[in-house]
Design a protein around this nucleic acid. Structure first.
Lengths: 334, 334
DNA sequence: CTGAAAGCGCTTACAG
DNA sequence: CTGAAAGCGCTTACAG
């Protein structure tokens, strides 16, 4: 910037005004400055700008997800980014991999780069470490799961309700023994989905058999093993509810290996690519990740723009998508 | 930082030394400073630090891809991020959506935030706009496609060789009329794959029928339409080569709708999730996105660390994965 | 080992 | 409308 000013013999202030367009500058002068900018290949330093600005705005927001590679978070991300881009805001993301330490590490890294706001799918149980940053003006919105020890806006799926609907769907098909495979109980969504499962059984007057519930599985392999063990036991389930997309994938593979894909019914929570091309099609309880991202981003920017008011808790509905696997009757198709 | 210094009655320099750990500070003083840091919830401002440091390092790198949501780039990203994280470097990503203007816009945004290096899958034909930034010390590595009008390190798949192998696989199965569906010819990878297809035909002494080549399709719907049109023509192909993962998806759906999934052979370039669960399994020419990311990141950090020397051009081998669809004989299975 | 001072590249009152 | 000066939060020679 100094070079630009030097070349044209104008002040730094004038160059700044032309580049940012903050204050009117006489036509002819502005043009000379723009020419020099182009000539010298001058690129404004956004970090210096943020540092000096009165509002300290960085035009950057950070997203901390469990795993950016997961299709669900991917969709949330794209949705947030679309809205951010319209405002000229850059979106940066990171994966906590469900590790509380990594969540903090990433959050610190983002905050150290002076993001204007943060969208977090919390891995840790306690987000009170963000209280000071919020006081300092950082906007905060949580997605997928509520934060701990700090009150903030949050948008989630109807985990319990969606799972209830999925399990009820299996019950309506005549299933009485339904296996449930879920993530670690330390995860909010896993607990909610398990509660939904229990509620559906209770509503139908069915007993809750602990041997049909297996928590703490997450990756496809562990999920497949757990399903195989359940199916090998005495009085095995005739249907499975897989409470997470990675679990669904592992179980689908394993059922096929066991040749049981047409005999054991299956409904999964969260949708999968190509789920309708598999034989049988995979029935799922679909979430609305784009909607989640849109609501979160809208809320975040409202807070960044200074919206006061109570923290909101938005619960998005889920949708049951029957594709075949969830419609298999007990004992398999005729 | 000033508050921390004030509370403890030490100089700014001392606080800086303790926080960065750059220079030894007496044990007792350092502890007092750390206590004050914790007490005040002080968080170092990375932007100010970058601004003032002699080396101007930001510990941030930027990735500009075609689409972060695409499984291929997703894998490249994770691989780069893993390596960056080990160095304490933050990775920020963005999608150009194959739009040259968006590529520049993102690149500028990253450069304005003073990234130390950039990994780019170029959408534009000309990256000479980066020449000055490289002179200024920004490291540059290109992935998936070579840059235009600027010489730089690049790591790509063996697009032509992989496609040749895939098409030769179909020819070996007895196919003589093989339809080819590719992305826009303005895209480097699309041209290379088409060249590989042509080479395989030529090697087998087969004629190249222009009616069996359709370029300029990208999204699943357009790909499906193109495949349907080709199959509806007189003397239709008995096999299809789909030169991109999104094209493969669209064609698989369409073949199934037409009831042709067991009659028309199919090999796709680039792998898909659940490709082995579909009936028939989808045969593909798999790339090595993790390897691509690892090579790119290693190269980038070597440049950031000051490695001189010629620019390298690394070509990664592909791998043919037969799963069923590519092994269907002409006219369909018996 | 510690402190006082300068300055990174910008923006922002304050004058003119 | 334009310029000179101060200062954002840091790091870095330079002294001591």
């Amino acid at each position: 910037m100094r070079d630009v000013a030097g070349v044209e013999g104008v002040s730094l202030s004038t160059v700044s005004r032309v580049v940012t367009g903050s204050v009117p500058v006489k036509q002819e002068l502005a043009q000379r400055v723009r020419d020099a900018v182009k000539l010298l290949g001058y690129r404004p330093d956004a970090t210096a700008s943020t540092l000096r600005r009165a509002d300290r705005v960085s035009l950057t927001i950070g997203l901390v997800f469990e795993d950016v590679a997961n299709a669900f978070f991917q969709a949330v991300y794209r949705s947030v980014e679309d809205i951010a881009r319209m405002r000229g805001v850059l979106t940066i993301v990171g994966s906590s991999d469900e590790d509380p330490a990594r969540e903090r590490e990433l959050t610190q890294a983002f905050l150290g780069r002076r993001v204007d706001g943060l969208v977090i799918a919390p891995a840790a149980r306690d987000q009170s470490y963000l209280a000071r940053d919020r006081e300092a003006g950082v906007a905060l919105v949580f997605v997928d799961r509520p934060p701990g020890f700090i009150d903030a806006d949050v948008v989630m799926s109807d985990n319990a309700g969606g799972t209830s609907a999925g399990v009820a769907h299996l019950i309506a098909r005549g299933h009485r023994r339904i296996g449930f495979l879920g993530d670690a109980e330390s995860t909010f969504t896993a607990r909610e989905r398990l509660a939904g499962h229990d509620a559906a059984l209770q509503a139908a007057g069915l007993p809750r058999d602990p041997s049909l519930v297996r928590m703490g599985v997450r990756d496809p392999r562990a999920a497949g093993d757990a399903a195989a063990a359940m199916l090998a036991a005495a009085d095995p389930p005739t249907a499975l509810f897989t409470a997470r997309n990675t679990i669904t994938v592992g179980v689908v593979y394993r059922l096929r290996e066991l040749g049981l894909q047409h005999r054991v019914a299956l409904v999964g929570f969260d949708d999968l690519d190509l789920a309708d091309l598999v034989e049988p099609g995979i029935s799922v309880v679909a979430q609305d990740p784009s909607g989640m991202g849109a609501v979160a981003a809208t809320r975040l920017f409202a807070r960044i723009d200074g919206a006061a008011g109570d923290h909101e808790r938005v619960v998005l509905p889920t949708r049951l998508v029957p594709r075949g696997s969830g419609e298999i009757p007990p004992g398999g198709a005729a």
